[in-house]
Amino acid sequence: MRECWGIIFPIRCKRHFTNCFSKILEAMCLKIPVIAYGVGGIPEVLKNGEPSWCIPPNDQNGFESALEEVLALDAKSKETILSNARKLVLSDHTLQKVTLQFEDFYKRLLDSPTGVFFKLSQFG
Rank of each mutant, 00 (worst) to 15 (best):
L82P: 01
T99F: 14
N61A: 15
K78V: 11
E68W: 11
L109H: 09
Q101C: 15
L88K: 03
F105W: 14
Q101W: 09
Q60K: 13
S112M: 03
V98S: 06
F63H: 03
Q96N: 03
L110H: 05
F102N: 12
E68G: 10
A75I: 00
E69P: 05
L88V: 01
K76G: 15
P57L: 08
L67Q: 08
R108P: 10
P57H: 11
F105P: 09
K87F: 13
A72T: 07
R86M: 14
E79A: 15
L95N: 00
F63S: 02
K87W: 09
L110T: 03
F63A: 02
A72C: 07
T114Q: 08
D74F: 06
E103F: 09
D111E: 12
V98T: 15
K87H: 02
R108Q: 13
P56S: 06
K78D: 14
S91F: 12
T114D: 11
F102S: 15
Q60V: 15
K76W: 12
V116G: 14
L95P: 02
D59F: 06
I81S: 10
E68M: 07
Q60F: 15
S91H: 13
V70N: 05
D59I: 02
L67D: 01
L88N: 00
G62Q: 08
D104M: 07
S65D: 15
T94P: 05
D74I: 05
Y106C: 04
S77A: 12
R86Q: 15
S77F: 01
Q101D: 15
F63E: 00
S91I: 14
A66P: 00
S112N: 10
G115D: 01
S91E: 13
L109G: 12
K107S: 04
L73N: 12
S83N: 13
K76R: 14
L82R: 01
A72M: 11
S77D: 02
H93F: 15
L88R: 00
L109D: 14
Q96K: 09
K76Q: 05
L88P: 06
I81W: 00
F102M: 09
D104A: 11
E64D: 14
G115R: 03
